[in-house]
């Protein structure tokens, strides 16, 4: 079995320590960094994402897989810049102001990273201004907003308005998700993309950036 397949399979099983060892071995064998990333780590995370979307695995499996991926990417990061490996795109993500729920947002973040996107995590309770300012300052192509409460989802509309006021509306894609949000709501507030689950959000983000 190829070492890259081994990396992918161990990542899917959440074997963080093994993944780290295998990634180091792959580096030592002179396998190109981009290949280790794409065919080992991201390949494994992509399979987990699909299984998650199909309810074949659940949050525990995603979390342990994401942690295993992080172990591998930590080794690769210092080598990636030198090798000229660039992220697929850049996203800022957060849970909107007034809302402290973060597991949905964190799952989307993991899935985005699993697709090779660079993610700026703004945490929870994030104001519309912070989303927009971050997108400008960090040159993000996508803003991802999460809300769990009907009482906080309105902040998503503020993000759309602030992006328009800041003159970046045509440069940034605004994605929304969370329990009370729907495709109808997305259209109503003038956001761009609604997805119902974390894996679909990552797929949509890749489409935007490619």
């Amino acid at each position: 079995m190829s070492i890259l397949v081994e990396i992918s399979e161990n990542l899917q099983r959440g074997k963080a320590k093994v993944v780290k060892e295998l990634v180091q071995q792959a580096i030592d064998q002179g396998i190109p960094v981009e290949q280790i990333l794409n065919e080992g780590l991201l390949s494994g995370m992509s399979i987990i994402g699909e299984k998650f979307k199909n309810n074949e695995v659940y949050v525990p499996e995603v979390l342990v897989a994401a942690r295993a991926m992080n172990q591998g990417t930590q080794l690769l990061k210092p080598l990636m810049a030198a090798a000229g490996v660039k992220a697929v795109g850049k996203v800022c993500i957060g849970t909107v102001q007034g809302d402290l729920h973060d597991i949905g947002k964190n799952l989307v973040k993991m899935m985005l990273e699993g697709k090779g996107l660079e993610v700026v995590d703004l945490g929870t309770d994030v104001s519309a201004e912070t989303f927009v300012n971050t997108a400008i300052e960090q040159n993000c192509q996508i803003i991802c907003c999460s809300a769990l409460l009907t009482t906080t989802m309105n902040v998503m509309e503020d993000v759309v308005k602030k992006a328009t006021e800041a003159g970046i509306r045509d440069k940034v894609t605004i994605m929304i998700g969370g329990a009370p949000v729907s495709d109808d709501y997305c259209k109503k507030i003038g956001a761009d993309i609604y997805t119902s689950d974390a894996a679909s959000a990552a797929d949509a983000a890749v489409n935007v950036c490619s």
Binding site: Y58, V59, P60, A179, S196, A198
Partner: peptide
């Protein structure tokens, strides 16, 4: 559970 399913699966 959330909108896209339970946080844990049948195995847990």
């Amino acid at each position: 559970a959330g909108k896209s399913g339970p946080l844990i699966g049948p195995a847990q």
